[in-house]
């Protein structure tokens, strides 16, 4: 129990107040106690104290969480809820079958979707194509960099972060490639990759585009920005996407946004294992966007790939690509 040992005091500090249930009030899917953050902390504690033995029920309960950190905003004791859940996942010897497939894909192809990666040599500015970006928006990325006049190096492959979130350590070769290519600036559109490649001080695509300040054309459309949990609550990037959307169109906001933004269910490892819950999370956002007569803009390929299944959505990469003159 090495991983959970680190969080022993943290688990004891949880008062059991259940304030972390608050953000779930909007949803139908929390069905039972272990669906809530408090319940998961208690399961982690039971695992740690050996009062509980691992079984499939426990694996499902501990994996049924996007690690979005929304509940932490409501925890008055500042408990590191997601860190505890993640540590507990590292203690589990079994994976869900849906997760086995992702890990297997990664090991075979260096891509959790099991797809071929895309790479290209260029300057010392690198864009990490990753697995989700390649699937969802490869051509738009290439065209965007062309329009920006940047001869970008493209590094492919999965950063491994979705695998780490389910409690398995995998080696990615992206860091090695970046060093070999003497890359000076690393740009991503996937917040998972930004978290995995923190040591390279990566920039999000919105930060990169803003720093170049390109000329852009406006369209008279209403766009509503969906804060990705990982870009927002984990990386603190809230303003840059909004600034860019505001330059090219009319920005509308969700009632709950920035630190309090709702999770869309799009993280690939979550929606593969819990499609029904992921759909319910998505539909809350889709419904609000429709009520506000606005098209959703995402800034993460995980959110985009998921939300587009249910309504009108563009990723900020698409929006920028068509707005830059």
């Amino acid at each position: 129990m090495k991983m959970l040992e680190k969080y022993h005091d943290e688990m004891l500090s949880c008062t059991g107040c259940a304030f972390c249930k608050k953000s779930y009030a909007a949803y139908e899917f929390p069905e039972k106690e272990s669906d809530y953050p408090k319940g998961k902390i208690m399961l982690a504690y039971g695992l740690y104290t050996k009062e509980l033995e691992e079984n499939m029920e426990m694996v499902r309960a501990l994996q049924k969480c996007t690690l979005c950190k929304r509940c932490e905003v409501d925890c008055p004791s500042l408990i590191k809820i997601t860190d505890i859940i993640k540590a507990a996942r590292f203690e589990l010897s079994t994976l869900l079958p849906e997760h086995e497939i992702l890990v297997d894909n990664f090991r075979r192809t260096n891509n959790i979707l099991g797809e071929e990666n895309f790479e290209r040599d260029g300057s010392r500015i690198a864009f990490i194509m990753g697995c989700m970006v390649k699937k969802e928006m490869k051509d738009a990325v290439i065209s965007l960099f062309d329009k920006l006049g940047v001869d970008v190096t493209i590094v492919g492959g999965c950063c491994g972060h979705p695998i780490e979130k389910i409690g398995r350590k995998v080696e990615t070769d992206i860091g090695k490639k970046l060093r070999e290519k003497n890359i000076e600036k690393v740009v991503l559109s996937c917040p998972n990759g930004m978290l995995a490649l923190r040591e390279f001080n990566p920039m999000h695509i919105t930060q990169f585009v803003l720093s170049l300040n390109p000329e852009m054309k406006r369209e008279e459309k209403r766009y509503i920005y969906h804060d990705s949990s990982f870009l927002g609550r984990y990386l603190g990037i809230y303003d840059e996407p909004r600034e860019l959307i505001g330059r090219v169109a009319n920005l509308v906001e969700f009632d709950e946004r920035r630190e309090r933004a709702k999770q869309c269910g799009g993280e690939i490892e979550f929606r593969r294992a819990f499609p029904q819950e992921a759909e319910e999370l998505a539909m809350h956002l889709i419904k609000e966007a429709r009520e506000k007569n606005a098209t959703i803009v995402t800034a993460s390929p995980h959110c985009y790939g998921h939300l587009k299944e249910y309504g009108e959505v563009v990723d900020i990469v698409h929006l920028l690509e068509r707005s830059i003159i």
Binding site: T15, C17, E33, S34, L52, A61
Partner: peptide, 15 residues
């Protein structure tokens, strides 16, 4: 629900 993790999680309140 009769699975042990469920029974365990339901066994707490805030006391």
């Amino acid at each position: 629900l009769t699975d042990k993790p469920d029974l365990y999680a339901y066994g707490f309140d805030a006391s």
